[in-house]
């Protein structure tokens, strides 16, 4: 939920919503994807006590890793009622990533919910290298 808009565009989907995210490398792509999701979900100011958490996520392959990774960030909001404010991928392989995430408590007086993302779906999921850059296509359940 940083102030700079992450590198993504919205995909039109009748019932739900998707994003097309771009990254300079795989690590950057996963960071941008998580930041893009937060950007679509919420806007608002920083506030409350910051917590730093470490996340480790495994997947079968890159698309699976992407769904599980974004699912973890989403759970911080849905399950823990916290907002990820700074997201950094420390290490990544096609089946594993380590990340450090700063969170603050969700506060309805500070944060406006723009779109309620209820789940990260596998529908038409794509993570691929396009030329020099990486791209991911992710569709959310709203």
């Amino acid at each position: 939920m940083g102030s700079d808009k992450p590198d993504f565009s919205l995909l039109d989907h009748t019932a739900d919503m998707g994003i097309l995210v771009r990254g300079t490398n795989l690590k950057n792509l996963f960071e941008e994807a998580a930041k893009s999701m937060m950007h679509v979900m919420l806007k608002g100011a920083q506030g409350g006590k910051t917590q730093t958490i470490k996340l480790s996520v495994t997947g079968n392959d890159l698309p699976d890793l992407m769904v599980r990774w974004l699912g973890e960030i989403l759970y911080l909001f849905e399950g823990e009622k916290t907002v990820a404010t700074d997201i950094s991928v420390d290490a990544i392989s096609p089946s594993y990533l380590d990340a450090t995430v700063q969170t603050i408590p969700f506060d309805p007086s500070l944060h406006e919910i723009l779109s309620e993302i209820k789940a990260v779906t596998y529908h038409q999921i794509e993570v691929a290298k396009k030329g020099e850059r990486w791209e991911a296509r992710i569709i959310f359940d709203l």
Partner: peptide
């Protein structure tokens, strides 16, 4: 509500992993 969402999400992740082993030729991972 979130209860049902989490149950769906948990099993989708589990089955997504195992669908590859089962060699289901799925046109869409969802």
């Amino acid at each position: 509500r979130g209860f049902g969402h989490q149950i769906c999400d948990d099993f989708l992740k589990e089955m997504s992993r195992d669908a590859l082993k089962e060699s289901f030729d799925l046109p869409d991972r969802q």
